[in-house]
Design a protein around this nucleic acid. Structure first.
Lengths: 189, 189
DNA sequence: TAGCAAAACTAACAGTTGTTAGTTATAATT
DNA sequence: AATTATAACTAACAACTGTTAGTTTTGCTA
């Protein structure tokens, strides 16, 4: 098997640079400089700049897809499922905080098959979430507001958590889970 | 007074191109092509690409600042103030949907004084919002969850509203206001 | 110590970037 | 009809982009 250490290092360094300025503002020479090598040397380990982006984004996207699938098949109430989704996002945020910036802001710079499969994963994910909410409304667990408003209110908070979790002194993960579940499900008032 | 029509047109076209791919992925030649002129001609109306970005972002940022200031001085309960902030975001989203993409995703590409004043406006805005929440907790209007969690849960939803409001068939503004207030303040359960 | 694969290097490519200088066309005003 | 401001144009710049070809260094294994 191909040795992967150096390649992973490139992807990690790139993630961290993309985090601050985005994919298009970072050049291959920037990535190389951050590793104290020359840009051409990167190509001993990776095929293209695109490949780096795809690697970063699709790895996390697959985590979300897998996590959502295990929530969907569980035998739980809608509210319990939403709690599980909230916890899923928090766990991924803690483990992949830098990759999440690329996933949120640079996915549109993916190309070809990578772009297509990202969009499919994202749409499927949202559709699963929407179904959970609709079932919750049908079962009188969830107030009958516009499902789309509920979906995007929760999902927006979860998707941008990565910004806040590093901006302010990191809140303990368990307190964060408890408080987010409380705020997003029971409201603030 | 200098005639501003053509200049505004450039900024509008640029906004719309930045919306899809971000500031760095759009060249001056792209903007010019979208207006059926040559890139060099743009410089009869604007000083630099940076100026376009600053114009787009700072105009909306000032709207938020002004709106928040009028909420802060109002003689209302914390919950009423938060309702007003939600409505402020929805109104701005409807009127400036394309500029909001730049504000959210490309603010870090501002430079010098523009960057400094954007960050100051953003920090002040968040600080005002945080204070409203803290007052609400102190007055027993708001449940005593971590103020930062409440702040970012609401603000994340509001800040990314521009994506959803165009993605799905636009929901009527008044229904949107009612439902968002309901979901964000009273929760979904 | 010799051989070899991994991973660095230098040099260069063709294309793109934001921007400037200098010039011409357009259209309104005198 | 002549003047003038506005806004377009062509041409070019220096710097930067992702990437490649070919070469040298590095460090492990035989």
């Amino acid at each position: 098997m191909k040795q992967k250490n150096r390649r992973d290092e490139i992807i990690e360094v790139a993630s961290s640079l993309f985090y601050d300025k985005g994919f298009n503002a970072i050049s291959m020479r920037d990535i190389a400089a951050a590793m104290d090598i020359k840009a051409a040397s990167l190509y001993n380990h990776i095929k293209s700049k695109q490949e780096i982006l795809a690697e970063i984004i699709l790895e996390v996207a697959k985590e979300f897809t897998a996590g959502m699938e295990s929530v969907v098949v569980a035998n739980s109430s809608a509210i319990e499922k939403i709690e599980k989704v909230i916890e899923l996002h928090i766990d991924i945020t803690v483990n992949y905080s830098e990759a999440l910036a690329a996933l949120n802001n640079d996915w549109m710079h993916l190309e070809g098959e990578d772009l297509k499969s990202f969009i499919k994963m994202r749409d499927d994910y949202e559709e699963n979430f929407r179904d959970i909410i609709k079932q919750g409304i049908a079962a009188n667990e969830i107030k009958p507001n516009h499902p789309e408003v509920i979906l995007f209110s929760i999902l927006s908070s979860l998707r941008t958590l990565y910004i806040w979790n590093q901006k302010r002194g990191k809140i303990d993960v368990n307190i964060l889970k408890k408080d987010m579940v409380s705020v997003l499900i029971n409201g603030i008032a």
